[in-house]
Amino acid sequence: MLRRISISTLIFLLLLAGCGRSDDSGDGETVGAEGDPFRIAIVMPSSTTDIAWSQSMFDSLVAVQTEMGGEDALTIAYSEGMFRVTDASAAIRDYASEGFDLVIAHGAQYGNSVFEVAADFTETSFAWGTSSDTGADKGIENVFAYGAVANEGGYVNGVVAAMLTQTDVIGVIGPVAGDAKLYIDGFVRGVTEIKPDAQVNISYTGSFSDTTLAAEAAHVHIQAGADVLTGSAQQVVGAIGVANENGVAWLGTQSDQISLGPDVVVTNQIYNWANVVADMISKIENGELGGTAYKLTFANDGLRLEFNENIEIADEVKEAARTAIEDIKSGAVDPVLWEEDE
């Protein structure tokens, strides 16, 4: 609760600061730097429209920008499709040398590059995720780290899945074994919590972007009796299409996937990075360039569970989900150890 208050205060202060700044610039007397917009650059492994990891951050940045008052207050520069780490590394370095206030490296694989560049540009602030490592042990002070405690949302989605299923068979479509482990582990726990006997079938496609195989995996789960599906990574668009066609419930994660399956996406765990970004901005403006590791949780509103407004969802399902979220927040459900996950 305290955290929530502090965050809302922060955003409020930020807004004030934003207003104040525009007043200042109206005077035309203040120091130039004060009137300049805050400049964020972000480097992403996939596209801004991947409906998963990259998009979740990009959407959050745009939300912060809108909240702060548009491009006059915050500019966003982005490099998308930087799946090659060498390219990303070059982009990070370029942004740093161009004097951006905050350079976000949105991928765990960029960690090396971030620390290398951060050591060379100590006046610039960096952020990277998924991670909890701010480089403090390496003597680095200008790096933020962030990540999502995806097992929380996984758990709640699991609870929802268990409430929804008639067949007691639930299908999970993962990308590469070992990845998205947090979400899937949380999901399985959530299911077992409600229906210990329900069967959770997990299959991996071996790729992050093989939409064709993900779609077929959805078919396979459905034929094997599953009536609720979930999955992660940008490949799931294929599977959601299949769920939609077969009228099988889909539980989304990372970005808003409701538009893809307006009739079947029941809930959606959304990564809301806006608070994290806003907090970083305020820290940087106060001269604190790094050192904090952020985690998205339900408690700090970094994770949100959205219900699809277009479809009828039984009250007891919604109630179960809300209870699960409250249990996680209060700690009644054992909070899982902090781990990295995309």
């Binding site: 409906i51 064709t212 077929e216 299409g241």
Partner: peptide, 9 residues
């Protein structure tokens, strides 16, 4: 088979 379009699908 999928009824969506995604980059490099």
């Amino acid at each position: 088979l999928q009824n969506v379009f995604q980059e490099n699908m």
